[in-house]
Design a protein around this nucleic acid. Structure first.
Lengths: 351, 351
DNA sequence: CGGCATATGCTCGAATTGAGCACAAGAAGG
DNA sequence: CCTTCTTGTGCTCAATTCGAGCATATGCCG
């Protein structure tokens, strides 16, 4: 989990372990946890399912649904995920994909413990949240509550200019610690690229990079909670977006970034839509996830031209204007195109 | 790990586990293994580092470098990976990224064992294999030995028409098992999309999908070894490509697919190149990975226009023709473009 | 019935892309 | 030395795609 920038020869801070020739038998055993970022779009708002944690030090913090994986009970990771998500929340997941496996020590809240001995595997699931249909636990919460800087639907979010830019620039002016742990790229340049300062382009897919930068800079609560402030001289009150338990917000950031990337080359957007929809509803859903982009007429040309949808024959009348044709997902596109999706391109570099 | 096709409501075959309210404490413990697909390009041949397994039933089978992860010894997964890769092979990894976590039971060779209790996390590493520089263990082997159908450098590989197409079509004509476990798409259609039968486009990124389809169809040795032939009436001798231990070939397939995708939007191709190179050498490296594509002049326009390279000022004379300008990777591109890479597009649907 | 709001069709210029022509310049060989 | 081969490099041109706007359609509401 890094910036995925091209850099050779990252240092290996750990000491080499003893040589071993046939290592297969000497595993240390750890627990496996599964985290699910369950995403839907409710009233044009992208939401994730959050469960309320028990109140800890600073009040109750949201978390993602979480459950252990037992290879004894479940044949596959995804099967285990579906089972306990159903048990915990009443939801039957549709589409699900694995995101990333997190095992980093040092991010976990237990202060005295040496190693977490828990590896957590993050999953992304997309679903329709028609009403609160059978939800027994957890609430749908806008993902922009956790990541307010990601919400460009009404233009550039103010929090970037008012909070993020000054604080990140102050951080960039401090010298980086000599370990050079993070990156070969200067702090200021990373901030510029991530948040589009000074006219750089905003890349809506870099959700994780942005969160990790804020974490490194000590601007999210999780950084303080994890004790990184002790080592540096940070502001005590960070508060950019709602925090989450453990590294759940990192997983959610990964999920958002993956969702934003994926709808461009896989028709997963339809996992979030009802069966019939108007093209404008489809556009609004895409924009809820990506931020506003497209010219309505061009969006129509795009999705119709790509063969992603077909008219149902019916119309929707209560649109407030001229009635709109209803469409449905055209499954055959999967057999026709190698990578069908809503291929919207980057917006023209608004800053 | 599936076809990532848009399909709702996959059935959950496992039974629900007992309800649990605060699951964090009741982890079953399992071992964590790390697998590395270490990729380089040697003499225009894409290679992966393979280690020879001890001879099992049918002779020695290659495997990927593999080591256990101990959270006690290593702070991060990637740190652990780098350490034992260095110990086992003498290599210092440059670029590395996590691929996927595999925990599926039923793919492991132990016939009597109920559950593997080992979760393996696959990594992709890109490196330069200048000579056998310090290699203490393992050999570089062309990845097309494991996946001959992926090698389109001399046109469509013959093995597709001679072996894969007839055998997959025979498999497609058999009725799918009622469990409908794999996909909502008919076997024949999946085969068509994966391998480009009947004029469908070849998508060089679908490496994993192709391997998994062959596995399901019982056409790779691993399927036989895992005992799937007992349930069906398969050919006893599969032999499409060299097999590997456990699910290492699946990990390598994931690695190849990811590499092919990634060089298009990240400048990771330069991890595989020496510092100075000619544009034609760069093109050959890209083609080794992707298959042949580009018009030489357009490739030049592409990489120069994208600002990916800059001339060193020197020339390379021993080219067999006119001397060629030498170039180097232009790091500044990382600060200028959000997703710089060799944006080659799909070849014009050769079948 | 007229105005409003949304839906939908169409056009046009700019940018990108695929493909080829032409020429440059060292190597090899008579 | 001059021809020919081979690879490198600059340029053009048509086809396609993309961004943006104009114009018209049509139900709803007063």
């Amino acid at each position: 989990m890094n910036m995925e920038l091209s850099g050779r020869g990252k240092p290996t801070p750990e000491k080499s372990q003893r040589a071993h020739v046939r290592p297969e038998t000497e595993h240390a055993t750890v627990g496996i946890g599964l985290n699910a970022a369950i995403v839907a779009v409710l009233d044009n708002e992208p939401v994730a399912l959050a469960v309320r944690g028990e109140a800890d030090s600073a009040g109750a913090t949201d978390g993602l649904p979480f459950g252990p994986f037992s290879p004894r009970e479940h044949r596959t990771l995804e099967g285990g995920l579906r089972a306990w998500v159903h048990d915990q929340t009443g939801l039957d997941l549709g589409y699900a994909e694995q995101l990333y496996t997190f095992a980093d020590r040092g991010r976990l809240p237990e202060p005295g413990d040496v190693a977490p001995h828990v590896v957590s595997i993050g999953y992304l699931a997309l679903t329709q949240a028609n009403g609160q249909h059978g939800l027994t636990n957890g609430v749908w919460r806008s993902w922009y509550q956790y990541f307010p800087w990601e919400d460009w639907r009404r233009g550039r979010p103010e929090i970037i200019a008012s909070e993020i830019e000054p604080r990140l620039k102050a951080w960039a002016d401090k010298p980086a610690p000599a370990l050079a742990s993070a990156s070969l790229i200067a702090r200021g340049d990373r901030a510029r690229m991530c948040f589009g300062f000074d006219g750089a382009a905003w890349d809506e897919e870099k959700v994780l990079e942005r969160y990790e930068l804020l974490y490194e800079a000590g601007l999210v609560d999780e950084a303080l909670r994890d004790g990184r402030n002790a080592a540096q001289g940070w502001n005590v009150r960070a508060k950019l977006g709602l925090p989450m338990q453990a590294d759940h917000r990192r997983i959610l950031a990964t999920a958002i970034g993956r969702t934003r990337a994926k709808i461009k080359y896989r028709p997963v957007i339809f996992e979030l839509m009802p069966n019939d929809f108007t093209l404008y509803e489809l556009q609004k859903t895409v924009e809820a996830i990506l931020g506003p982009h497209l010219h309505k007429q061009n969006f129509r040309r795009l999705v119709e031209g790509a063969g992603l949808v077909e008219p149902t024959g019916d119309m929707k009348t209560r649109t407030g204007g001229r009635p709109a044709k209803l469409f449905r997902f055209r499954r055959e596109v999967l057999l026709e195109r190698p990578a069908p999706g809503v291929r919207v391109s980057a917006p023209p570099s608004r800053s």
